[in-house]
Design a binder for these strands. Structure first.
Length: 357
DNA sequence: TCTGGGGTCCTAGGACCC
DNA sequence: TCTGGGGTCCTAGGACCC
């Protein structure tokens, strides 16, 4: 909660209480599939790859019934099949989910236009509540609006900033509303490991543990200069702020402008012939170039990614100068970058175009 | 556990210039 | 002559998120 002064339509100044709401759809991909195949309700549903659990790939979303049996996002499909042989495995249907996602965001925007979209199934929005203290009522209205519009349930986190609201949501799942406030931040999170926080993963948690920081509370109390020396001038101080639950970024409802566009493929069988790898790079580069040109964007750099067998990744890139919209220029930059790799057996190739602002 | 695909941002080292 | 310091760009990789 924080106080904000805003102008009312009649020109008077109003003091309001500003809250950030984080809205997150529950088991989004699995819920969408159950919605269009109601006979799947109550079954362990696993969405991932092309729906064939004997192939290379990982789980995108598992239903709660599947999670109870040890399968979640990121689980290899082959592992999921061993754990739940009778699960319903479905392919990722991007286009369909994008359509549903648009409907969810539309529903949110009917309450206020200022919505910051984080992905297919997540968004922040601001609530200025002049009456003081009831953001839960707004949260419940949001849940009803989304349910009416799409048939999907969501959870809502409430707090003073994005970081705190985002974390609050996990306490509200499924289909609930949860508020953390500055006062309860340490009560609820102080004893947890730092990787419970948004933006801190296992690698950083391990490095923090090496300097004796194993809880959120210790991170908040850590010396900023020491963190800066260890993690860099931007990341170090940011880590301390995250520990303390501070987030200086405002909810940003500006339209999304992409910074890069890439395509990549993991092969079901490793590619051993280098000429086959080269052909795949050429195909991917043409796809990427086509899509970038369709969006009317200028490419400033092309990066090729190769994942060698067994699982070792390298990247090489080429600047495109001057920035270009020509597919042939993009493709030849990709080919030049590709020439820097050593020929060896490959399991993945990718091509990514970085775009001018 | 045999490890997807689509992204974003940050860091560090080297080149190069003044 | 054998050597400073700052700034910027490029590059590769790391880490994280959904």
């Amino acid at each position: 909660m924080c106080r904000q002064v805003v102008s009312a339509p009649d020109g008077r100044l109003l003091v309001v209480t500003r809250w950030v709401l984080h809205v997150d759809l529950d088991q989004f991909l699995a819920a969408v599939e159950v919605l269009r195949h109601p006979e799947l309700a109550g079954l362990p549903v696993v969405v991932g790859g092309d729906g064939d659990p004997t192939k290379r790939g990982v789980v995108s979303t598992a239903s709660y019934e599947a999670r109870e049996r040890g399968v979640g996002s990121g689980t290899p499909l082959r592992t999921a099949r061993k754990r739940i042989p009778d699960a319903v495995f479905l392919p990722v249907d991007r286009e369909h989910y994008e359509g549903v996602s648009d409907a969810v965001i539309q529903a949110l925007r009917t309450v206020t236009p200022e919505v910051e979209v984080l992905g297919w199934d997540e968004a922040f929005r601001v609530v200025d509540d002049p009456s003081g203290d009831d953001p839960e009522a707004v949260a419940r209205a949001v849940q009803e609006r989304v349910l009416e519009a799409t048939g999907l349930h969501c959870s809502v986190g409430i707090d003073r900033n994005r970081l705190q609201a985002k974390i609050a949501t996990s306490y509200g799942k499924p289909a609930g509303v949860h508020r953390i406030t500055g006062a309860t931040w340490f009560e609820q999170l102080g004893h947890l490991p730092p990787d419970a926080l948004w933006g801190i993963g296992s690698k950083t948690a391990k490095k923090l543990a090496e300097v004796g920081i194993t809880t959120v509370r210790q991170l908040a109390d850590a010396d900023v200069d020491a963190l800066a020396a260890r993690f860099g001038p931007t990341t170090g101080p940011w880590l301390q702020r995250v520990g303390a639950g501070r987030d200086t970024a405002r909810v940003d409802s500006a339209p999304y402008v992409r910074r890069s566009l890439g395509r990549e493929i993991t092969f079901q069988q490793d590619l051993v012939e280098w000429a086959d790898v080269a052909r795949e790079v050429d195909l991917l580069a043409r796809r990427v170039a086509g899509e970038v040109v369709d969006e009317g964007r200028h490419v400033v750099r092309v990066v090729v990614k190769v994942r060698y067998v067994p699982f070792f990744t390298e990247t090489h890139g080429r600047v495109v100068a001057p920035p270009s919209t020509e597919p042939d220029v993009v493709v030849s930059a990709a080919i030049e970058a590709f020439e820097r790799f050593e020929p060896r057996a490959v399991r993945l190739v990718g091509v990514r175009a970085e775009l001018a602002r």
